[in-house]
Structure formats: C-alpha cells, structure tokens
Deep mutational scan, measured.
Amino acid sequence: MKTQEELTEIVRDHFSDMGEIATLYVQVYESSLESLVGGVIFEDGRHYTFVYENEDLVYE
C-alpha cells in the first residue's frame, strides 16, 4: 500500500506533463489510505479537481 506522500507524487507527476503547477492540494478530510482527493492549479490559471484511487486518476 502506498503512503499519501507517494500518491501525491504520482498525481504531481501526471499533472506536470500538462504544464507548470502553481499549487497541488489534498483534501485530507475526503482522502484515505486508498484514495487521494484534491486539486491542482497551474501557473496559467487552469484548475482541476481530482480523485486518485486504485491506480486510476479521474479529474475535471
């Protein structure tokens, strides 16, 4: 089982391919040991929310 830090790094690596990240945040109250819920804001102003669970990243 991966730690929350490892899950965060996986998500950061994925989004870094889309541009320069200004902020990546995790909603700790919605996340667990198996899933990571949060959002990412890019330097150009784009903002996505995401759920990473079971090695699957869903964002909008």
Score class of each variant (00 low, 15 high):
Thr23Met: 10
Lys2Met: 09
Ser32Lys: 11
Ala22Gln: 12
Gly19Asn: 02
Glu55Leu: 09
Glu9Lys: 14
Phe50Trp: 09
Glu5Tyr: 10
Glu34Cys: 09
Thr23Asn: 09
Leu57Arg: 01
Glu5Pro: 06
Tyr52Ser: 02
Tyr25Asn: 03
Phe42Asp: 00
Val37Ala: 08
Leu7Arg: 04
Ile21Cys: 03
Glu55Ile: 05
Val28Ala: 13
Lys2Pro: 06
Thr3Tyr: 04
Asp13Lys: 15
Glu6Met: 10
Gly19Arg: 02
Gly45His: 04
Glu34Lys: 09
Val37Tyr: 11
Arg12Val: 06
Ile41Gln: 05
Tyr59Arg: 03
Arg46Ile: 05
Val28Cys: 10
Ser16Ile: 10
Gly38Pro: 00
Asp17Ala: 14
Leu57Gly: 02
Phe15Ser: 01
Glu55Cys: 08
Thr23Lys: 11
Glu6Thr: 07
Glu60Gly: 10
Ser35Met: 12
Glu20Phe: 11
His14Leu: 13
Asp56Val: 15
Ser32His: 12
Phe15Gly: 00
Ala22Gly: 06
Thr3Leu: 05
Met1Val: 11
Met18Asn: 03
Tyr48Asn: 01
Asp56Cys: 13
Thr49Leu: 10
Thr49Pro: 03
Ala22Phe: 09
Asp56Trp: 15
Asp17Gln: 15
Asn54Arg: 11
Phe42Glu: 00
Phe50Ala: 00
Gly39Lys: 06
Leu33Asp: 09
Asp56Gln: 13
Arg46Lys: 06
Tyr25Thr: 05
Lys2Glu: 03
Asn54Val: 05
Glu55Pro: 06
Thr8Ser: 09
Val58Glu: 07
Glu30Lys: 13
Leu33Phe: 10
Val37Ile: 12
His47Thr: 06
Gly19Leu: 02
Gln27Thr: 12
Tyr59Asp: 03
Tyr25Leu: 04
Val58Met: 10
Leu36His: 01
Leu57Ile: 10
Val40Pro: 00
Ser31Cys: 09
Met1Arg: 09
Tyr29Thr: 06
Leu36Gln: 01
Lys2Phe: 07
Tyr48Ser: 00
Phe50Thr: 00
Arg12His: 06
Ser16Pro: 02
Glu9Asn: 12
Gly39Cys: 14
Glu5Ile: 09
Ile10Asp: 05
Val28Tyr: 10
Glu30Arg: 08
Asn54Trp: 07
Leu36Ile: 12
Val37Cys: 11
Met18Lys: 07
Lys2Ile: 05
Tyr25Lys: 03
Met18Thr: 03
Thr8Pro: 02
Tyr59Leu: 07
Val40Ala: 03
Glu5Ala: 14
Gln27Ala: 12
Val26Lys: 02
Tyr59Asn: 02
Ile10Lys: 09
Glu43Leu: 15
Glu43Asp: 10
Gly19Tyr: 03
Glu6Ala: 08
Asp17His: 15
Glu43Asn: 12
Gly45Trp: 03
Ile41Pro: 00
Ser16Cys: 07
Leu7Pro: 01
Thr8Val: 10
Ile41Trp: 08
His47Met: 07
His14Val: 12
Ala22Tyr: 10
Lys2Gln: 06
Leu36Trp: 05
Asp17Trp: 14
Met1Lys: 13
Glu20Ile: 13
His14Lys: 13
Val11Cys: 04
Tyr48Ile: 07
Glu60Asn: 13
Arg12Thr: 06
Leu33Ala: 13
Ile10Val: 08
Tyr59Ile: 09
Tyr52Arg: 02
Arg12Lys: 10
Glu60Leu: 11
Tyr59Phe: 10
Val11Asp: 01
Ile10Met: 10
Glu30Gly: 08
Ile10Leu: 11
Asp13Thr: 14
Tyr25Phe: 05
Ile21Val: 07
Tyr29Trp: 12
Ser16His: 09
Tyr59Val: 10
Met18Arg: 05
Ser31Met: 11
Ile41Cys: 07
Val11Leu: 07
Leu7Gln: 04
Gly45Cys: 05
Ile21Thr: 02
Met18Phe: 08
Leu24Lys: 00
Leu24Thr: 03
His14Trp: 12
Gly19Val: 02
His47Pro: 00
Glu5Leu: 12
Gln27Cys: 13
Tyr52Asn: 01
Leu24Phe: 10
Gly38Met: 02
Glu9Gly: 10
Glu20Gln: 14
Glu55Val: 06
Glu43Arg: 15
Glu53Thr: 12
Tyr52Asp: 00
Gly45Ile: 01
Glu20Ser: 12
Tyr25Trp: 08
Gln27Ser: 13
Glu43Thr: 15
Thr8Gln: 08
Glu55Asp: 13
Ser31Leu: 09
Asp13Tyr: 15
Glu9Ser: 12
Glu30Gln: 10
Thr8Lys: 08
Val37Pro: 00
His47Ser: 06
Arg46Asp: 04
Glu43Pro: 04
Phe42Thr: 02
Glu6Ser: 06
Val40Cys: 05
Ser16Leu: 10
Leu36Val: 06
Met18Tyr: 08
Asp17Glu: 15
Glu53Ala: 15
Thr49Asn: 06
Ser35Trp: 11
Glu55Gly: 11
Phe42Met: 12
His47Asp: 02
Tyr52Ala: 03
Leu57Lys: 02
Glu60Met: 14
Glu53Trp: 13
Ser35Gln: 12
Thr23Pro: 01
Ser16Val: 09
Gln27Asp: 08
Val28Met: 13
Glu53Val: 15
Lys2Asn: 05
Val58Ser: 14
Leu7Thr: 03
Glu9Gln: 12
Thr23Ser: 09
Val37Asn: 06
Glu20His: 13
Glu20Leu: 12
Thr8Gly: 05
Val58Arg: 14
Glu34Ile: 11
Asp56Phe: 15
Ser35His: 12
Glu43Tyr: 12
Val40Lys: 00
Leu7Ile: 12
Gly38His: 01
Met18Gly: 03
Thr49Ser: 11
Gly19Ile: 02
Ser31Glu: 11
Val28Arg: 14
Ser35Gly: 06
Leu57Phe: 07
Asp56Ala: 15
Thr23Gly: 06
Glu20Ala: 13
Leu7Asn: 03
Leu24Ala: 02
Ile21Ala: 01
Val37Arg: 13
Leu36Pro: 02
Tyr29His: 07
Glu60Val: 14
Gln4Glu: 09
Glu55Tyr: 11
Val11Trp: 02
Leu33Asn: 14
Glu53Tyr: 13
Glu20Met: 12
Tyr52Glu: 00
Asp17Asn: 13
Gly39Asn: 07
Thr49Cys: 07
Glu53Leu: 15
Leu33Met: 13
Val26Thr: 06
Glu20Tyr: 10
Asn54Pro: 05
Thr8Phe: 10
Asp56Glu: 13
Tyr29Phe: 10
Asp44Val: 02
Gln27Trp: 10
Glu30Cys: 12
Asp44Glu: 02
Glu9Trp: 12
Gly45Pro: 01
Thr23Leu: 12
Val11Tyr: 01
Glu9Ile: 11
Glu60Trp: 15
Ile10Glu: 07
His47Gln: 07
Ser31Asn: 09
Asp44Ser: 04
Ile10Phe: 10
Arg12Trp: 13
Leu24Val: 08
Glu55Phe: 11
Phe42Ser: 00
Ile21Ser: 01
Ser31Pro: 12
Asp44Thr: 03
Glu20Cys: 11
Glu9Cys: 09
Leu57Asn: 02
Val51Glu: 04
Leu36Lys: 00
Gln27Lys: 15
Glu5Asp: 10
Asp17Pro: 13
Met1Ile: 12
Gln27Tyr: 13
Glu34Asn: 14
Glu5Ser: 11
Arg46Ala: 06
Lys2Ser: 06
Glu53Gln: 13
Tyr29Pro: 05
Glu5Phe: 11
Ile21Trp: 03
Val58Asn: 09
Asp17Phe: 15
Glu53Pro: 01
Glu6His: 08
Glu55Gln: 12
Val28Leu: 12
Ala22Asp: 06
Ile21His: 02
Ile41His: 06
Arg12Ile: 08
Val11Arg: 01
Glu6Tyr: 08
Ser32Tyr: 10
Val26Met: 04
Leu7Ala: 04
Glu9Met: 12
Ile10Ala: 07
Arg46Leu: 05
Asp44Tyr: 02
Val37Gln: 10
Leu7Met: 08
Asn54Gly: 10
Ala22Pro: 01
Asp13Val: 15
Leu33Gly: 11
Leu36Phe: 07
Leu33Ile: 13
Ser31Phe: 09
Tyr25Gly: 01
Glu5Trp: 12
Thr3Phe: 04
Glu5Arg: 08
Val51Leu: 09
Tyr52Trp: 09
Leu24Glu: 00
Glu60Pro: 03
Gly38Asp: 01
Tyr59Gln: 04
Gly45Asn: 04
Ser16Arg: 13
Gly39Thr: 10
Gly39Ser: 09
Glu30Phe: 06
Tyr59Gly: 03
Asp56Arg: 15
Leu33Arg: 15
Glu6Trp: 07
Thr3Gly: 07
Glu53Asp: 08
Leu24Gln: 01
Val51Thr: 12
Leu57Cys: 04
Glu6Val: 08
Met18Trp: 11
Ile21Arg: 01
Leu36Gly: 01
Phe50Arg: 00
Thr3Trp: 05
Glu30Leu: 11
Lys2Ala: 07
Ala22Leu: 10
His14Tyr: 11
Phe15Thr: 01
Lys2Trp: 05
His14Thr: 11
Tyr59His: 08
Lys2Cys: 06
